[in-house]
């Protein structure tokens, strides 16, 4: 007899050079308290490290937290690194300090969840739960 249990696995990563991860930690704890398994990798992650972690950890969600303003440069590199590893089915979300005018372009890159500085963790959790269950339904 087998019992199947599925947990939502989320990679929370901080690309780039800024050294503040208080926000990312708050999010990691909120997701854990919502029953998710959060792989937390710490600060100063290169796009390559993020993609390797997403691959090896087989996560459902990659969440990037960025405060440095380098998102328009770093996000496309993360996506390229993911694609080159065949990781094409993760839900992409991001948060931190992201100016309003960049949001359309970021969505265009494939980030379906974009959460600014005032976003609540409750909204993020709901977004993840809905999106992951929808994509699992497809498969």
């Amino acid at each position: 007899m087998t019992t199947e249990t599925k947990k939502i696995r989320v990679l929370v990563a901080k690309p780039g050079l800024d050294g503040h991860d208080r926000g990312a930690k708050v999010i990691a704890r909120a997701l854990r308290d919502a029953g998710m398994e959060v792989i937390y990798t710490g600060i100063r992650q290169t796009p390559r490290m993020i993609a390797e972690a997403a691959l090896q950890e087989d996560v459902d969600v990659v969440g990037l937290s960025i405060l440095s303003g380098a998102h328009m440069e770093l996000f496309p590199r993360v996506i390229t690194e993911l694609e080159s590893r065949g990781v094409d089915d993760v839900l992409l979300m991001c948060g931190g300090i992201i100016p309003e005018e960049d949001i359309p372009a970021i969505r265009e890159m494939g980030f379906t969840g974009v959460f600014g500085p005032g976003a609540s963790t409750v909204d993020m959790i709901e977004f993840i739960n809905l999106s992951v269950s929808a994509s699992r339904h497809e498969n």
């Binding site: 029953g35 959060v38 972690a53």
Partner: peptide, 10 residues
Amino acid sequence: SQGAILGDRI
């Protein structure tokens, strides 16, 4: 919560 924070990669 049955959730977890997995921090060993750090």
